[in-house]
Every structure is written in structure tokens, then in C-alpha cells.
Design a protein around this nucleic acid. Structure first.
Lengths: 233, 233
DNA sequence: GCAGCTACTGAACGCAGTTCAACAACACTA
DNA sequence: TAGTGTTGTTGAACTGCGTTCAGTAGCTGC
């Protein structure tokens, strides 16, 4: 994964003006430059929000002219969406866990979700900047951006329902689990914002809440699960 | 081509251009005009998002010139925040229920929350446009707007914690209940988006999830639980 | 050293937010 | 009915930022 490091990718402290005024022109490989721009976007959008970040800021942060951004992205919205998509994708990839076999005992499924939650909080702790960028500024004024997050959350909800063998869940479960994904996102944000809740406690609470959303009691979960998923098993 | 004749609070369908070119100038009382502008903002921001709504659109919808907006609001962001604040306030006011006495039995508190949830879904069903405006476009690019929603949600979480006598809740509860508020918001949106989940079922599920967030088991939190039809078949 | 490719620049353009001096609707007085 | 003050209202001008594009320059291959 790409990090914000200093191997020539970060060009001094671009303060203002049009990138490199007078400085020698630096030519980078296209993919690397693209990554650098996206990385600058992550940082800036994490702290300031779409409208408050100017093209000039991004260009300055990368030490290039404003015009160059349009060599890599059609416009500002597209750039913003690329930043978000990249992060949502990274988050989704990081939290993906192998689903349990369809005939595995219920306990296995619980363990799987627990592992997924661990991976989730790992990601949050490891990339607070990225995570903030998704849920602070990323939820943006543009409908396309909202839909990006919405789709990612819907996918996450589907993954979880599938984990429990609910290929065709009832509407109530669908709505509740989708709500739980928002719950988790907000919990992650609060956790980052200085709450010193022990990580395992938080994970277990999230797990409990998920079970509630599914409409099952964790303690006796094993018996209830097989009851609702009759169509598939 | 503009034919906004109606002079009332609802100015026909203003199509485009700068409000009233050539038409007779309509002078309204300040408070009424302000309300009209805010109302136009509610509708427009509900469907299109901050950046996609232009000052000209708002002005056209109200049948006035662009300049007039600046007579009532310092700038576009301030106008947007006023629209949001108005709706968040309406939502908060609509869902406010009298808190139970501190020494009341647990069942009373549960009933209070149930009443609050009822009021909440009442609001969602009665003002879908407003509700969408808050959670679709309202979560906006501007940090001020985000903070507005964040503050409203934090207040809602505090209200709920206070309802359960948790004046000084542990950090885990605080984080989880704050997460639950996001859960509720998302559930409300999903519910609006064509899900035909029976309203009582949804309410009971939300209640269960809230208890999970608080870390209490509904079954032993009170005996009132089995009153409604959550336990079907 | 030359040529070709393309990453890169920066001046100029246009649109949308914003400003402001002038205008006009209404109320009040005579 | 005319005169006057208040202020809601206008629209043309201004400004800043996203966007364009013709030109520039760093790199590679010969």
C-alpha cells in the first residue's frame, strides 16, 4: 500500500502559488504521479471537505501546476471520486474474510464476523487519515460520492448477510443490517476521536449489536440461525 | 417565458433565469420571504446536493432575483446551514419526549424510548422530503454542515443516555449509543426507500438494537418487552 | 546530438457566487 | 392626491476558482 513518505514523492513543502514557480520541472512516471496526487487528496479531503479544498491546494501539495491534475483526471469531482473509491476499496479489501462453509456450525460464523471486525478496527487504527477521509469529508455534496459510499455500505451489508447464509433475507434484516453498517462506521469514528475504549470490548459490543440487528440472541444464536435460513440449507 | 404569477408562498414552478425579469416586483414581509427561501432550499437540497444547486435555482424557485438571497443570508453556505438547522431542529423537536423520573422502573424508560421512536418514524413518514434533505444532501462538503449533524446526533445520544439515568455513562456506552443514532438515521432512510417493513416490527428491532448498544438484555431489562408483536411465529 | 514521446506548465477563459448602487412597493402624513 | 421615508428587491458588474490548451521540457532510443 502507498504511504506518504519522502522518497522524492513529497516535494518539499509546497506552500502556495502555482506549484513549482521557477523550480526545475520534475517529471515522474504516470502511475507514480497519479498515486501521489491521490495521496495528497486523501490528506487534504480528510481535514477540509470538498469545497474547502482547491485544485491549487492539491497541486501545491504535490508540487505541480494546477493544470497537471487535468492530465490525470477529467475534473475535480472525478478526482475526488477516485480518492474515495481508492479508500473504500482499500477498506473493503482489508476487512474481507473468507466466508465459512455453508454447512459449518454457527460458532464458526460468529468467529468469522469477529475476525472481520478485528480487521476493520485494524484498518481504522492503522489508517486513521484514510478512514477519516471517508467518513468526514468524503460523504460529500455530490450525489455520485454519496452513492459511492452507499454502494460500499450496501455491499458490506450483503457480505454480512451472506456470511450467515441469508441469501434472501427478510426486509427487516436487510434494513437493520444496513443500519448496523452505519453504526459501525460511526463507532469507528468515535473510537478514533479520542475515546479510550478497549478494543476487544468495542468489538464484542459491535458483535452483540449485529446479532440484535439480525434478530438473534448471541447466546442462543446457534438454534435461531438455522431456523431463519431454511430455504438455503 | 417566466410566468410566476402566484405571489403566494408557493411561487409556481420557477424554471430558470434570474427570477423576475420584466415582471412586476413582488414585495413580501421579511419573515415570510425568508421562510419561502428556506422552504425552496429544503426541496432543492433534498434532491440535488449542495454543489449541484445554484443560487439561481433557489432564486428561480422563489421567483426572485439572485441578489435577494444575500439580503437574508450572508452567503450560500450560511443559507445551506440555515436550511439544515431548521430541519434538524424540527426533527429534534418532533421526537422529544418527556423523560421518565429518575426513580421510575425500567419498564417506564423502555416505554418512553418506544414513544420517542414512534415520534421519530412519524416524522420520517410525514416529512420524507425534509428527512431526505438532512441525510442525503445535508451531510455536505462543508465542515460546518457536518458538525451541525454531528452535534445534533451527539445531542440525541445524550438524550437517550439521560433517559436511562446514565448521566455519566462509561465510554463504551457513549460510543455505542452514538453509533446507534447513526443506525437509526440509516434505518429511516432505508425505510423510506421503498422497504415495506411493518412499522412496529422496525420500531421493536430498533429498540432491541438500542438495548444491545447499551449493553443490557431487553429480556431482563423489563418484562414489558413481549407486549408488541415482535415475537411472531 | 537529434528526434520523438509525453509529462508538465501557465496564461487565459467562463461560470457561479458575491457585491452594491439604484429602484420601487408600501405605509404614513398632510 | 401628492409627498416622503423605509426597506424589500433588482440586475449589472465584479471576483475567484475550476477548466482548457497551446506550448515547453525532461527522458529514452538511436
Amino acid at each position: 500500500m502507498i504511504e506518504v513518505e519522502s522518497t522524492g514523492l513529497t516535494p518539499a513543502g509546497g506552500t502556495r502559488s502555482t506549484g513549482g514557480n521557477g523550480r526545475r520541472r520534475v517529471r515522474m512516471e504516470a502511475a507514480a504521479r497519479r498515486d501521489q496526487l491521490l495521496e495528497a487528496g486523501v490528506v487534504l479531503f480528510a481535514e477540509r471537505g470538498y469545497d474547502e479544498v482547491e485544485i491549487a491546494d492539491i497541486a501545491a501539495a504535490a508540487g505541480v501546476s494546477r493544470g497537471l491534475l487535468y492530465h490525470y483526471f477529467p475534473d475535480k469531482v472525478a478526482f475526488f471520486l477516485a480518492v474515495m473509491a481508492r479508500q473504500l476499496d482499500a477498506l473493503a479489501r482489508a476487512t474481507r474474510v473468507a466466508p465459512a462453509a455453508p454447512d459449518s456450525p454457527p460458532g464458526t460464523r460468529e468467529a468469522t464476523v469477529r475476525a472481520g471486525l478485528d480487521a476493520y478496527f485494524d484498518f481504522v487504527a492503522a489508517h486513521p487519515q484514510w478512514y477519516r477521509s471517508i467518513y468526514r469529508s468524503a460523504v460529500s455534496a455530490h450525489s455520485a460520492a454519496r452513492e459511492l459510499v452507499e454502494r460500499a455500505h450496501a455491499r458490506q451489508a450483503r457480505r454480512i448477510l451472506a456470511l450467515f447464509g441469508e441469501l434472501d433475507p427478510d426486509p427487516l434484516q436487510r434494513v437493520a443490517v444496513r443500519g448496523w453498517v452505519s453504526f459501525l462506521a460511526t463507532v469507528g469514528m468515535s473510537w478514533l476521536d479520542g475515546s479510550e475504549v478497549p478494543r476487544e470490548q468495542l468489538r464484542e459490543r459491535c458483535l452483540q449489536v449485529l446479532f440484535s440487528s439480525l434478530g438473534v440472541t448471541p447466546a442462543r444464536a446457534s438454534s435461531v440461525w438455522s431456523g431463519s435460513g431454511s430455504s438455503h440449507e
